Amino acid sequence: MHTTIISAATLQAHLADPAWIVLDVRHELTDPQAGRAAYTAGHLPGAFFLHLDEDLSGPKNGSNGRHPLPDRVSFAARLAGLGVNQASQVVIYDAQGSMMAARLWWMLRWIGHQAAAVLDGGMPGWLAAGGEITSTLPPARNAGNLIAGESLVGSIDAAEVMSNLAVQDKLVIDARAPDRFRGENETLDAVGGHIPGACNRFFRDNLQADGRFKPAAELRADFTALLGARPASRIIAQCGSGVTACHNLLALEISGLPGAILYPGSWSEWSSDPARPVATGN
């Protein structure tokens, strides 16, 4: 069972294995149709496409963020419709530094499915390793038996994050780029800044120059420097809309520091209510 990341070579050896299923979640936040177009032009053999807005997010109401989580039962049914079974090994990839793939990785754990791994290096890594791509759509699979079970991960809502401001029991780690964390160059959300008391860990700092994750020991050293004596169970992972925060959660898992929780609404939800405090700068 692969539960964090997987190499292109390992996936290549299992592409024809019916117990494995590959999911393509390429997406551009500024061009929501780009991922589907990229999939149509060429994807890993047998891969199915899922859309961040349509499949990995629920309905927006103006105050629950840009990518609220969908209904767990409906989400599991969507995956089962693609052929995902309780025993399936799921492999996920994108072309955006694994930021979208990490979101689906976390969501699979959220519905209780542990055998989920991100293709290390994504589509660029696959191509660099000589992997084949095709524009042929995969044949439909028989419906799988995946159902939403007991969650393997934790999450927190805005009210709980607000309560934490007073006690500072948990450390909020913001995965956005440093300029957005400081409240500069905000182009996605109406308000710039960050949750008071949060620290910044840009998700791309989890990657090497080739787009693959840093070695576990290096990631552990990076996060330990942020955490100090805190255990990972006292981390709230947050970003703009609950997507790249999952990249930090995956990096923590790779590094052997499990137990951090996600604030799914993240900054896009937090900043939608003017009563919630906002900090800027470092």
Rank of each mutant, 00 (worst) to 15 (best):
Q12Y: 10
P274F: 07
A190M: 12
N206V: 02
Q168N: 13
A237T: 03
A148G: 14
A77Y: 01
G144S: 07
A47T: 00
S163Q: 11
A116C: 15
A209N: 13
T10F: 05
N145I: 06
P18G: 03
F49I: 12
Q168R: 15
K214R: 11
A34G: 08
R276T: 00
A237L: 09
S163N: 08
D205W: 06
R180E: 04
S266Y: 09
R212L: 14
G193N: 01
D157R: 13
P59A: 06
E184L: 15
I6A: 03
G256T: 03
R230P: 07
R78E: 02
E269H: 00
R72N: 07
S155F: 11
Q238D: 14
L152C: 06
D222F: 07
F213H: 07
R78N: 02
V22K: 08
D55H: 14
R220M: 01
V243G: 01
G256Q: 07
D210A: 15
F223P: 07
T136G: 09
G259V: 07
L69D: 01
P70Q: 11
G58E: 02
E186H: 04
V90L: 14
I92A: 09
S155G: 03
L104F: 10
S135G: 04
P68N: 04
M107D: 04
M100R: 10
I254G: 03
C246Y: 00
V73E: 15
S268H: 00
W105H: 04
H2T: 13
P18I: 06
P258D: 07
A37L: 12
N85F: 08
T244D: 06
S88I: 05
D273Q: 13
D120H: 11
Y93I: 10
D24A: 05
G58V: 00
R176N: 01
F223C: 11
P231K: 09
S57D: 00
A216C: 02
K60Q: 14
D174P: 05
H67C: 02
